[in-house]
Computed example of a mutant assay.
Amino acid sequence: MKLLMLKLFNLASFIYMIVASVFIADFSSGMGSAEVYVMPAPFAFSIWSLIYLLLFLLIMKSFFANEEEDLFVSRIGLWFPISMILSGTSVIVGTTPAILFISLSLLTLCIVYTIIQGLYLSSAKYRVPFSIYLGWTSIATIVDAFVVLKANGIEELFSIGELGWSVILLTTGGLIALAFYFLQKDLLFPFVFVWGYGAIYLYQENELIKFIAAAFVVIILFIISAGLWKKIQKGK
């Protein structure tokens, strides 16, 4: 009964996130209320559709779960629904408080991802939705941080302007994506950064921002391609 209630709570939290993001968010100030150097092209946000679909399939499949899937649901526990509630709330509370909710959503997703990695389950299907969800939430947190600063008229932080911080955080994000690939053997997380950084490159006009975004797209794709090629060669 306790496990069933957890599955129902997952579904309810998912519905809340969908309603908040699709039907309510348009009436809030939202992430797009301020143009910043790290803002990706609007089409990039379509990745949410993939995230919603993968999460929905994962949640619905849990109602017809086997023993391994029940273990997965019970171990991630309330962290998963909490992350969805925080994510949905971040788009309806207004620009400034949104950064708190999206950051907490990112933190809870990190916890969920860590738990999943520690389960050593037989299939990567459990990790796939969260790799993409975590990757995009990471990018969304970076973007939202700059939107909040600009919306509050803050042009410098610790004597560093918006462009400087954009360079720092874009570089940090790219390095984190590479670290995930090497440390977690995760292909999807860095691919989300390829998607996001590619959209930043296409949308922004600042040459330095375009250079950094393009550089990480090329580096990530090269390293992943090289790794896949080595696996193919070993498999022959």
Rank of each mutant, 00 (worst) to 15 (best):
I154V: 15
V147N: 14
V217E: 00
F146W: 11
F193T: 02
C110A: 13
G161K: 11
Q117E: 10
E205F: 13
L208S: 12
L106W: 15
K150P: 15
I168E: 01
A215V: 06
I209N: 07
A140S: 05
G161T: 00
D186A: 09
L175N: 05
I223R: 03
F222T: 08
L106S: 11
S103E: 04
S159L: 08
N152I: 11
L119M: 14
G227Y: 01
L208E: 14
T141E: 00
D144G: 12
E156D: 14
L104I: 08
A214T: 04
G161L: 09
A226F: 07
E205A: 09
D144A: 09
I132V: 15
G118F: 09
I154D: 07
I219Q: 00
L187Y: 13
G174A: 07
E205M: 14
G173S: 04
V128C: 05
F130M: 12
I116Y: 00
L175H: 04
F191C: 12
S225N: 05
L157W: 11
L107K: 07
L149H: 10
G153F: 01
S122D: 13
E207W: 07
F216Y: 15
L188E: 10
F193P: 01
F211R: 09
L134T: 13
Y197P: 10
L208T: 13
S123L: 14
I132F: 10
V217H: 01
F130H: 09
T114G: 04
G153T: 07
E155M: 11
E156L: 12
P190I: 02
Y181A: 03
R127C: 05
C110K: 01
G164V: 14
S123K: 09
F158D: 07
I160L: 15
Y197K: 05
